[in-house]
Design a protein around this nucleic acid. Structure first.
Lengths: 348, 348
DNA sequence: GTGAAAGCGCTAACAA
DNA sequence: TTGTTAGCGCTTTCAC
């Protein structure tokens, strides 16, 4: 493997000149530069990332970190959405010539962040992208103390100087609910996309409640169900709602897969969607399209891209900066599951 | 940030003793070691990965590389299966104290491997795990020339000195087909899980053909359909098969999502599954379970774990070793979609 | 515009 | 058992 010395010798210059030529950090005569570049090409030289990292104190890596116990990595979203997010990150790391390190904790303990902290302390990464963190996720305070760059993706952390990029889940929950109210519904169920300590879940839920309040509808605890990432959680939710003496006429599903479960179950019970039961959801994944479900578009590509862009700004910067909360727009894609503008459609 | 010098000074030893104590690479008196470890703990010292990497010529990272253009990362498998694979890799990298770098090409050109080669040349990674490569994927010859460690996951490369870890897709294709034949079927359709230049797809297809041959059934080109990762490709396949004057009575679906499409479509056409049309599939994802589809279990956890274990063996080794082809066992999980032992079941 | 040289934080050969 | 020291391959300051 060629080193900078080999290049210097072959090009008959000093190693500092080679370094200047490569990085543009010093003046180099055009002919000299040309000669150096030719030798670099010929010897297929690439600077060692370790050597460079040692002196620049930058690893050239950022970390995509999933602060969940092992069972949950990447299962919180549809496959294509994860792909979108990676593409978004990919776009900006390519621009910066950075690499992406993927990390998570094997331990089931929620606040164990040993893997992440080890990455930080060994300086294996220059910044961290947090994917879908939980509320009150404590390990970040250590990062704040170290002034280590990080950005939260996929949720909002209130009252803390933490940079975030996300859709506004509160607003989305509000919008979905308001949409159903505008269509005449007053009895509206809500299925959370997951446990409420996930910010994303809680925010959607809060938005739902706020919309009810603004429309003088009293929140009814029986209309609330905690779901998860399986279709059956939608089925269970509907079953529970239908067992009530006064069941809801519309449901805000926490995520598309739940909406699918709800819709299938409703149809199996000979209920008309949206006639008997209207459904709106979040994500707008392939599932929503396939099953004709109205859903709020979650643009994970933009979230990934903006989050990494923001992270790079922090990595470059030495002086303090204002924390930023970047909100990615998220519109409701109206389909047949909630009635209203479009006519109902049947599928399957 | 504390350095090895700080530790040496505080513990009143030389830096080499500290290094010996940390790495176990030299003799250190028990009391000395204890003292050093206490100081390390107290100062929260972690060795710099760049500095260490520079001298050891190891980055401490392996790369999970998806040699596809951007649209395909991680969409070839069910989300939970991807998760399984990551967990498998995670288990062995944790053991080795390694990190996982995730990379893919942004470029649409199939044989562009610039990102990967850059990782190799800058020595940012010590080895590469290839996820689901295509047949005749040329960039690996460069790696072979460099004697750079890599392992193929998810497929088989014939006649080349390339280490692989996978289920035996040929055998799986054979087994699925033979299972249907044993149930009395002679007219069996095959839907490929993707384009045939994916080894995984081609191998399953070859297994299918071999099983036909061994049972004196002539291969019928009209019974073959190239599918993809969408449910609709199953629907299309069935529609095409049904339009034949002599349609198949059974179908080997290339992957679960196709099987679901086929089953739904069959039911929509008032066909009985498995009475009118029997279905077997590959993957055994959540989908197969939900839809009562017989499917060959693909143990991506083991694939991930064994592949990384193998990679670490190669990274450690200096001398030539025999290439290995590790086959992960994959049994057929029989459910209601193909008839036979279990009674049919209806779902949805 | 170019070069000499120091030093980033570590490992490991060699000396003591 | 411990210490001294020479690099690993690069960036960067400072002379020229």
């Amino acid at each position: 493997m060629a080193t900078i010395k080999d290049i210097a010798r072959e090009a008959q210059v000093s190693i500092s000149t080679v370094s200047f030529a490569i990085n543009g950090t010093g003046p180099v005569a055009p002919e000299t530069k040309k000669r150096i570049m030719e030798v670099i090409e010929r010897l297929n030289y690439h600077p060692s990332s370790s050597a460079r990292g040692l002196v620049t104190r930058q690893s050239g890596n950022i970390c995509l970190y999933v602060p969940h116990p092992k069972s949950n990595i990447f299962t919180f979203h549809d496959n294509n959405l994860i792909n979108d997010m990676l593409q978004g990150i990919g776009e900006s790391i390519d621009e910066k010539n950075y690499n992406l390190l993927l990390a998570w904790e094997q331990n089931e303990d929620d606040d164990d962040a040993s893997k992440m902290m080890s990455l930080v302390h060994t300086r294996a990464v220059d910044g961290i992208l947090f994917f879908n963190p939980t509320r009150n996720y404590k390990p970040i305070y250590e990062l704040i103390k170290l002034k280590f760059p990080f950005v939260f993706m996929g949720s909002f952390f209130d009252n803390e100087p933490i940079d975030t990029v996300d859709i506004d889940n509160f607003e989305a929950g509000y919008r979905n609910t308001a949409h159903l109210i505008k269509l005449g519904h007053r009895k509206i169920g809500f299925v959370s996309p997951g446990p409420l300590h996930y910010l994303l879940a809680d925010d959607r839920f809060e938005g739902y409640k706020e919309a009810l309040k603004d429309n003088n509808i009293r929140y009814n605890d029986h209309y609330f169900h905690i779901g998860d990432n399986r279709e059956t959680s939608g089925v269970e939710a509907l079953d529970r709602f239908l067992s009530l003496k006064d069941p809801p006429t519309a449901i805000v599903a926490g995520r598309d897969i739940q909406a699918v479960g709800i819709k299938k179950r409703a149809m199996a019970c000979s209920l008309i969607v949206p006639g008997d039961i209207a459904i709106v959801s979040f994500e707008n994944s392939q599932l929503a399209e396939n099953h004709d479900i109205s859903s709020i578009r979650t643009d994970l590509f933009s979230i990934g891209r903006e989050a990494s862009k923001l992270l790079f700004k922090m990595i470059g910067r030495k002086k303090e900066r204002q924390t930023q909360h970047i909100i990615i727009p998220a519109e409701l894609v109206v389909r047949g599951s909630c009635g209203g503008k479009q006519e109902t459609s049947v599928e399957e």
